[in-house]
Design a protein around this nucleic acid. Structure first.
Lengths: 344, 344
DNA sequence: TTGTAAGCGTTATCAT
DNA sequence: ATGATAACGCTTACAA
């Protein structure tokens, strides 16, 4: 058996090299390896043998150069994956099925000038690689301009997930937070709660804002009282929580909706410190099913946002957008599903 | 019939386009945009203006084609990130600093023919994209051949992390599991334990094997008794555990080393069911600091493997390998650090 | 100071 | 059945 030389200088096998070693033209090699049948069987066999021995693999960079399609999709997610880990998994697996590659970018949550530059650098790298599109969980409103200037304006498809960007027209996939907030209210009401507390993370983050709106709308004419606390983020400040629940308005609360599970968990803890037991003295409902991997903590009643479905749908939207650049942007709102727990 | 795929984004700006719009040659544009000073200031200004208005960004695919360096690094990690989430973060951030992009591949843990094909498909995609190198956490021994054939044999640098591949010469970064196992033994002994149990995950996975070896070596002449259970994996089967601890050998155990934290946690649970309390009746030591995000479970005494450092070091090794292809393969073993807990 | 040509790996198109 | 050429975007080497 004849041994074939490896490509020089560490470069991988190419059509040219195979052509040289078999004494035919590059085109014949190309045709053979693509399975086009206009090649003489004998020639084809020889070419295939050489290609195999050189471990030839087509160069996708070239395809990207020629066709404008690289098969690379960028994802931009928070450094602390948390909720998005499942979304990441489904994005990766969806892309795999489409024979596409995932370029992962993790950005810090906090958003000063430095973080902004960090994010911009990553976006530019993706653009320079000519990714086919970007799936992105926005950090906050301020990021708006960046995404638009750097991605959308070049006609590079962008799918935003989970949090909406205001005044920004592009494809979106997330939870139907408004309905979720409404459902939460109804759950607490039908559990007999008359003094409700709403713990949210402010109105600048769309998920918090819309869950709040849905909740307030659904409690409007219910006869129940509602007091609310803006926690400023999805993470609790125990002191703030304690202060709130000792204040007049919240003293008699018997039903609590927290727009995030972490907020809910810490609330239970804080109230326990104040001598109030859940669910004996009050019910609690969270959102996001974030404590899935925390089997030893209390089984919180919550809402599942199906992050896997969000990721899957994001890829679907992105691919659809690639085929139909003209279409108007679409928003997909997936319903949140109630998950029973021992806190309600 | 030919399916002509449209470009993803109506083609982006190129040197050619800028050259046409400014009435100069591509070379002048190239020089200007690279900041070479051999361009007339007036011409340069005009070119820069056009480039900016077209949002020109250099095409990295081309650089990859020309230089053989794409600036892309592939990571191959288990679908259930777990322990590797922190490694992932540090890999991403290390690559970012080097202006490199991360291609993430997540592979299922279980390893039939299907999983094998899945993995191979992903590896091929990375090769086709001409990634500069691969950082990989092997699934198990059987994967050996794949990695070698598809990656190493092409001269594509491969850095294996955490689990060693037998009979396979390539760069490696992981924990010093042998010393870790030894340290675990000494911790239990100096806590006064005389009847030790070792729970491991078999000898095919290097981490389990070496922790076991270290543990056994360190207990050799200690006077303490040692019984062991092969759990087959890092996940516990409660029934198997219960059976073991009710058996003669393990009935009087007062110190347990589990090669993984999950095993340790479940052991405590199982023994509790048998009426034995930790640390009253027995001490437990885990490995891996896997329950970090589980604040409500028992604070297990364990060993931190610093997965972030593993990721960082893996990138460093990979980059070094790219610059020095000739060097013999290196293995880096990072020490595991004891983490106190209420179980010891 | 500016331009031309060749080449990286591949394929569509047009010959032979 | 096979080959030559141009083109994708860019840079290096070589003119002018």
């Amino acid at each position: 058996m004849k041994t074939h030389k490896k490509p020089a200088n560490g470069r991988q096998a190419s059509l040219k090299i195979i052509a040289e070693q078999t004494g035919v033209s590059m085109m014949t090699v190309s045709r053979t390896l693509r399975g086009l049948n206009s090649v003489a069987p004998k020639t084809a066999a020889k070419i295939r043998k050489v290609a195999e021995s050189l471990r030839y693999r087509p160069n996708k960079l070239v395809e990207g150069l020629r066709t404008g399609r690289t098969g690379m999709i960028a994802a931009v997610l928070p450094t602390t994956l948390g909720f998005y880990e499942e979304a990441l998994r489904s994005i990766e697996s969806s892309l795999d099925k489409l024979n596409c590659s995932l370029i992962l970018n993790m950005v810090a949550q906090d958003f000063g000038q430095d973080a902004m530059r960090e994010e911009l650098r990553r976006l530019h790298r993706c653009i320079d690689l000519r990714v086919d599109g970007v799936i992105l969980r926005p950090v906050n409103d301020d990021a708006n301009a960046v995404y638009f200037n750097e991605v959308m304006e070049r006609g590079m498809p962008l799918v935003v997930i989970d949090r909406k960007l205001p005044d920004f027209e592009c494809d979106f996939v997330g939870t139907d937070d408004r309905s979720g907030g409404g459902a939460a209210a109804r759950k607490l009401l039908s559990a007999g709660c008359r003094h409700l507390a709403l713990l949210h993370a402010g109105t600048r983050i769309s998920t918090s804002r819309e869950r709040r709106e849905g909740f307030l709308a659904a409690t409007q004419n219910s006869g129940a009282s509602v007091c609310e606390l803006d926690c400023g983020s999805f993470l609790a400040d125990p002191a703030q929580l304690a202060g709130f629940f000792e204040s007049g308005a919240a003293k008699s609360v018997d039903g609590i909706f927290a727009v995030g599970d972490l907020l809910a968990r810490d609330t239970i803890q804080v109230l326990k410190g104040l001598g109030r037991e859940c669910p004996r003295d009050f019910k609690v409902l969270g959102f996001g099913r974030l404590l899935l991997n925390d089997p030893s903590s209390v089984r919180l009643a919550t809402f599942d946002q199906h992050p896997g479905q969000i990721g899957e749908e994001a890829v679907r939207l992105l691919m659809d957008r690639l085929d139909n650049p003209g279409k108007p942007p679409r928003s997909v709102h997936l319903p949140a599903a109630f998950v029973a727990g021992e806190t309600l």
